[in-house]
Design a protein around this nucleic acid. Structure first.
Length: 386
DNA sequence: TCTGGGGTCCTAGGACCC
DNA sequence: TCTGGGGTCCTAGGACCC
């Protein structure tokens, strides 16, 4: 596919939900809170004797060969080059003295809830974006009030929860997020509205959320390296390579980001993956794994009270390429049986097509559900109209 | 050095309907 | 007899984020 539009149109530059337009000269402020080295910080609460040491959360390399990656590295480990998402073997070589801690997501989820409850003291509008990021919206506040609130939040998170955080403060979500990245670790960076363009100009385009390696490469090909370069262009010049993302980018670069889009409260999809310790060459082994994953996913959807309208299966092959197949079930279904039956059928189809083209064994299996609807929501069947 | 697991959003072509 | 344009749904693939 030609990379005509590597990133879509709305991405992170959009409107905040639940925020009424305010007829006030005092702007709405966004405090973008990002917890520093979050998983590591959670572990250090339980093991304070490790503070100041190179700590890495991830599957310990001492427990044998693993296909895992680093989930979080302490700031003491980072000078060696260790980063999130880096293969464990690489990290172990870069930082042999690292202290490895296996991840405990239950612990991190609990800490994340504690953080959100602190944030809610300061505004009724707290928007969680991930386990370690959330935006606090201050309606009708002065710049000084926004700055002071950020300082208070940072102090409370540190003293009550022992969790260091960086906070970016701006009148739009995307600028607040970019400011947060510049504030790390443990800093606060406020960007006044009339300062936004000057703050952004020297930064690389990659600092913009939604601009990854592909888009960065495209822009470099056009002679655009910094956000300031971007601001000097006409959106029409960029529409062909970037699609509708172009005008969003240029508005942001000029310090006038578009209003933030509504973010939906309901989950759009649920999935579960498994990377095999050794690539799978037998259908029977793959089928067992499909049944197991589908069963786990059905159980977790059941706990969430969700039904599914589409089932999908994806296979990652030994060469790291990926193929996927999905199918609509018509009406939403629930339970292990329909999910497992559909998933096994799709997996078999993928397996067969790839076998006939003599493809490689399977590295990773994913089972996913889409078009989710709450169980309480009544399903409307076509039959009811006849 | 060899790449996890969980998500979101967008594009594009084809089917199908009006 | 030959032709239109718009809309929605489905499916596959891709970029990106934490």
């Amino acid at each position: 596919m030609p990379p005509s539009s590597p990133r879509g149109s709305s991405s992170p530059l959009g409107t905040l939900p639940g925020v009424p337009p305010v007829e006030s000269s005092r702007p709405r402020w966004v405090l973008y809170v990002d917890l520093d080295a979050f998983y590591v910080s959670c572990e250090l609460r339980d093991r304070p004797e490790l503070r100041g040491k190179p700590v890495v959360v991830g599957p310990p390399p001492s427990e044998g060969p693993t296909r895992g990656v680093v989930l979080s590295a302490s700031y003491e480990a980072r000078p060696t080059g260790v980063r999130s998402a880096m293969p464990v073997g690489v990290a172990a070589r870069l930082c042999p003295e690292a202290i490895w801690i296996p991840p405990d997501f239950t612990k991190y989820e609990r800490a994340s809830r504690e953080v959100r409850s602190v944030l809610r003291r300061h505004s009724p509008t707290v928007l969680p974006f991930s386990i370690d990021e959330a935006a606090v919206i201050l309606h009708d506040a002065s710049m000084d009030e926004a700055q002071r609130t950020a300082e208070t939040i940072q102090r409370e998170l540190a003293s009550e929860l022992s969790l260091p955080a960086s906070i970016g403060v701006a009148t739009s979500r995307v600028i607040a997020k970019i400011a947060t990245d510049r504030a790390k670790p443990a800093g606060i960076r406020l960007v006044a509205p009339d300062e936004a363009a000057a703050f952004l100009a020297p930064l690389p385009v990659r600092a913009i959320p939604g601009v990854g390696p592909k888009t960065e490469g495209l822009l470099r090909g056009l002679g655009i390296q910094t956000i300031g370069d971007l601001a000097a262009r006409r959106p029409s010049e960029l529409v062909r390579p970037l699609g509708t993302f172009a005008s969003e980018l240029v508005s942001l670069a000029r310090g006038e980001p578009r209003p933030d889009p509504d973010t939906s409260e309901e989950p759009r999809s649920r999935s579960t993956d498994h990377t095999f310790a050794r690539d799978v060459e037998q259908w029977e082994e793959l089928e067992r794994a499909v049944r197991e994953l589908a069963g786990e996913l059905a159980t977790s959807l059941d706990h969430e009270g969700l039904r599914f309208g589409t089932v999908g299966v994806a296979l990652r092959w030994a060469d790291f390429t990926r193929t996927q197949r999905s199918r609509s079930l018509g009406a939403a279904r629930e339970g292990t049986v329909p999910l497992t039956e559909a998933a096994v059928r799709l997996a078999r189809e993928l397996w067969e097509t790839e076998r006939s083209s003599r493809r490689r064994p399977v590295r990773t299996l994913s089972v996913r559900t889409e078009r989710l609807v709450p169980r309480t929501q009544k399903q409307v069947f076509l039959d009811e109209f006849r």
